[in-house]
Amino acid sequence: MAGNCVAEAVSAVVIDDHPAIRAGVAAWFAAADPPITVLATGATVKEALLAPGDAAQVVVLDLQLSAERTECYGELRRLADSGRGVVVYTMREDEGIALNCLELGALTFLTKAEGEQHLVAATHAAARHRPYVPPALAGAMAANSRRNRPHLSLREEEVLVKWFQSESKDLVADQLGIAVSTVNTYLDRVRLKYAAVGRQAPTKVALVMRAIQDGLIAVDEF
């Protein structure tokens, strides 16, 4: 019962400069099971986050809001830093842009071609601050073979995968019989190794994507 209450409480704002997209997403969310409450919509971040929109758990964000059609990375960073779960929902289908968004703090990157089912699922996941990997992104990650894969120890890989599959670092520590501080140490080492090869992964979701790219974990293992 408690789990249903949490799910039913999911709220979002929708930021897109196309009214038809805003209306369509709002309709999808209203029809979802459980429904997602749209507290505000707008063509700019400032408009969409005016009260009562500033109470929303999730922000569905189009990357290109300006007349110049440039990516609004600064807005994305500001939203993520404020503690909101950001779902980037865009026409762009570029892996580099996707990873950049995840590194800036987005929880999910979806193309608009992926539609209702994945956007609803991604929004529910973002409300719980969990990653969601839609098919297009998963395929891009799996297909990408990189030569600059960092060398991780078996223990670092084990801790990393357990963390992806757990709700908290406390659970990882309990499962592996180690201290939470030790879990943090292993994860810090992994991030440093990725940074050393030029593939920064400051957020959990960015690290998930790096791990999928490198074959450390498959999407169906979440």
Rank of each mutant, 00 (worst) to 15 (best):
T70S: 06
N4L: 14
G96H: 14
D17G: 11
C72I: 04
L119A: 07
V14D: 10
M1Y: 14
R69Y: 04
E8D: 05
A125L: 01
A113Y: 00
T108F: 00
D17V: 05
A26K: 07
S82G: 08
C5E: 15
E103G: 03
T123H: 01
G74A: 06
Y89P: 09
E95Y: 10
D17K: 09
L119G: 05
R69N: 10
L107R: 07
A56E: 01
A121Q: 10
L49H: 05
L49S: 05
I36T: 11
D62P: 09
R22K: 15
Q57I: 00
D62W: 12
V58E: 00
L119Y: 10
T108E: 02
E93C: 05
A32W: 14
L49P: 02
H124V: 08
G85Q: 08
V6Q: 10
A106Q: 00
F109L: 12
D33V: 09
Y73G: 00
R69H: 08
R92I: 11
A121G: 07
A2E: 14
L102I: 00
L119T: 03
A7W: 10
I15M: 10
M91P: 01
F109G: 04
D94F: 06
P52S: 08
V25N: 06
G115N: 09
G85I: 03
R22V: 10
E75P: 05
L99M: 14
M91Y: 13
